[in-house]
Amino acid sequence: MKINLKVWRQKNNKAKGELKDYKVDHVSPDMSFLEMFDVLNEDLITKGDDPITFDHDCREGICGSCSMHINGRPHGPLAGVTTCQLHMRSFSDGDTIVVEPWRAGAFPVNKDLSVDRSAFDRIIASGGFISVNTGNAQDANNLPIGKEQADEAFMSAACIGCGACVAACKNASAMLFVSAKVSQLALLPQGQPEAKMRVMAMVNQMDAEGFGSCTNTGACSAECPKGIDLSNIARMNREFFSANLLGK
């Protein structure tokens, strides 16, 4: 396969960027999208050009590093996969593919396709935890949790923090990410003591980071590689109302 690429190149955070054209020949349909970029970079290095910087690590869809906006969609055309799990068999010979970094004020570009997602860490640091010091725990089976509830908490906990939700949302809102963590902990009895503090602190931090607000388009969930459900956002709203309106 031959693939034409338009890739965002930007030297650093301060520099102005632009889309540049590249051609990649000898693309195998079994290659992952990132392996196709490896081939391109190898080519650029041989020519003495600066290879394209992009975030990636585990290449099996769980670390959440990879973050390419491909032909107008985060992680490309397939549902339920990250960029590293997208294979070239999803494209056709001769296709032109536009590749951009996640776009959000809260995710400034580091270089080329790599963005700074530390805002997510700061949101978790503001309250996305259960305050239990090491060694304080009781026996694990002293706290029975119904299977359905545990499974639902797990579904929320499956978030990999890649930021596709923000990238997809027309408002660059981080509500799906934040609500997944709020939900996971709100669904579990362990999370109850701090539930009100948690949701207030996390929403507050989310707003301070400059993410947009949610208008319920559902794009986040549709593009989420882990299929985090919109019901998480509704649950976070409920938690937030109850924390604000019913809390002390």
């Binding site: 107008g72 809260a106 027309k170 408002n171 660059a172 208008t215 388009t217």
Partner: peptide
């Protein structure tokens, strides 16, 4: 909300993931 994305995408395929009206 527009301010939350100061640089727009060159390609943005909204119809792939959300309803037009939304």
């Amino acid at each position: 909300n527009r301010k939350a994305r100061p640089v727009q995408y060159a390609a943005y395929d909204g119809k792939a993931n959300s309803k037009w009206s939304s």
